[in-house]
């Protein structure tokens, strides 16, 4: 494998891991709120979170581009405050993949939380455990399988993200080129052999991620 292929591989895995880690706390917290609490605006938030699943990824990408560009509402502020450029940088790739995989994480985690019997949480309360201890010692371990599954799903989605990424980050070799973008680019140029190499790499990573999660789930019987 060429140095370029290695670079693309590590970049893609790194970006997918970073975006999964970044959405994990928010996704788990939101999933818990959706599963366990009633609050005003809940159905609106549910719908907004699900949007990236149903609208074309390229359209989501366009929305992010407008929002995060230098003259965008959020992009201008981020650049002035932190000096962060988002669009057409690696940060843009992270944001695009994070937004696209967020709904998968939230949905899976929500189902996992809904599967934990509130009776067990109630008993824990009467045994003297405050809400945080109940969450850490009862809810979280019992939902762990589903949470891991959600994280793996989000990671896999981030690995393969194409539409939103190409809009927000473009295809800049060495800077924003992920596996999916590179495969498309190489095929366009007729460099099919190199594209097939990257295809092989994608399969190996995906296989590894799924295998790892299966192993983890087997280790903790329900």
């Amino acid at each position: 494998m060429s140095a370029e292929a290695w670079q693309i591989t590590w970049f893609t895995v790194g970006v997918a891991a970073l975006s999964t880690l970044a959405i994990l706390p928010f996704g788990v917290a939101l999933a818990w709120l959706l599963a366990r609490r009633d609050w005003p605006g809940k159905s609106l938030v549910e719908t907004v979170v699900a949007l990236p699943l149903v609208i074309p990824p390229v359209a989501t990408g366009l929305l992010l581009l407008k929002l995060l560009g230098r003259r965008g509402l959020l992009g201008g502020w981020l650049e002035r405050t932190f000096g962060w450029e988002i669009v057409f940088t690696w940060r843009g790739v992270v944001v695009a993949t994070a937004v696209m995989s967020f709904p998968l994480l939230v949905r899976t985690a929500r189902v996992a939380f809904e599967g934990v019997s509130p009776r067990l949480e109630n008993v824990a309360r009467t045994l003297g455990a405050g809400p945080w201890r109940v969450f850490a010692t009862v809810t979280l371990p019992l939902a762990a399988r589903g949470l891991v599954a959600g994280a793996v799903l989000a990671f896999a989605r981030a690995l393969g993200e194409f539409g939103a990424t190409i809009m927000v980050a473009g295809f800049i070799p060495g800077q924003t080129a992920t596996l999916a973008l590179s495969i498309y680019h190489l095929v366009q140029l007729g460099r099919d052999t190199e594209a097939l190499t990257l295809l092989g790499v994608s399969v190996v990573i995906a296989f590894g991620a799924v295998w790892l999660s299966e192993w983890f789930l087997r280790r903790r019987p329900a």
């Binding site: 019997s117 009776r119 067990l120 109630n122 008993v123 309360r125 009467t126 045994l127 003297g128 455990a129 405050g130």
Partner: peptide
Amino acid sequence: PERRAVGYVPQEGA
């Protein structure tokens, strides 16, 4: 509930 010192054994123990 955690400050009441009221023990609770629900149906089928949980």
